[in-house]
Design a protein around this nucleic acid. Structure first.
Lengths: 144, 144
DNA sequence: GGTGTTTATTTTGATATCTAAATATCAGAC
DNA sequence: GTCTGATATTTAGATATCAAAATAAACACC
């Protein structure tokens, strides 16, 4: 796309924007493929992984982690519960909150899937040098 | 997320991956908001914009541009057609292909919305210096 | 201690999107 | 010319997701 006739700053911004979309799209499609092997959606994996690394969390906390709406978290946790990978616990101090815990089989599954995920992500980012990764990380962090 | 106990390269890759997801998420949610004013979805806007800048395109070409499946393009073009913003044309040499054109009101709309989009994107990326944008662009380009 | 406000989750109603199968057309080999 | 395989779009069936309203619990404050 050429975007002529635009002020420089807008043209540059649009170019970065388009590249960001394309990069994310290509990265995710390659990195998320392996989840099918275990019948997990990206969101389901995200929830399992967050609890795996951070311990039991409430649904709204999970929503922030995996960047999905609260309404959607209800659905995602429902489907994980149906598969016996997590349980909801409403017995905390604040009874509005649901705390989501891994079951034994949830723990087993994520303990198997996460290392593979880490490998796939590392492999798919191999084309970046360690320096590239560091600079890219710093730049992306500024988006906040 | 700390990702201890992982090899360095995997830990670094995961950090970049997470930052990429978060950056894209935060950028898109801020940059796509203005489209609601004109009742356009991101995909609908993407199609209008692609034709606006590149001229009439087939649906599969549009799918590549906006990173959506062919099946979905049918739906997106359907909805644009319903709003009289584009027309399908099947009269080319290859009669399998549909070529999507802007109507007059489609042209008017995108001629109004695109400059605003460019402004919003530029504004939302203001926190990056021109140098930052250039380095980021170069790094993201490597994702191909 | 009742009342209004905030917070967490769920429900409702709707859209966007995907994969796989169906359909239609084209292009090349024979 | 006809068959075979590739390509473009559409249809069918399904899931993921969202925004807004509903529900329920906690908090604040007079």
């Amino acid at each position: 796309m050429k975007y002529n006739r635009l002020p420089d700053n807008q043209r540059h911004a649009l170019n970065v924007y388009v590249k960001l979309m394309r990069a994310t799209n290509s990265a995710t499609s390659r990195m998320h493929n392996h989840l099918k092997e275990d019948n997990l959606t990206v969101s389901q994996f995200g929830v399992l992984e967050a609890i795996y690394h951070l311990g039991p969390l409430s649904q709204s906390e999970l929503g922030e982690k995996i960047l999905k709406s609260n309404a959607n978290l209800t659905t995602v946790v429902d489907s994980l519960e149906k598969k016996n990978l997590v349980v909801r616990n409403r017995a905390g101090e604040d009874r509005r909150k649901v705390t989501v815990h891994l079951t034994e089989s949830g723990k087993e599954l994520i303990a198997k899937v996460f290392p593979r995920h880490a490998q796939v992500v590392a492999k798919e980012l191999e084309f970046l040098s360690e320096d590239d990764k560091e600079s890219l990380g710093k730049l992306l962090k500024k988006f906040r």
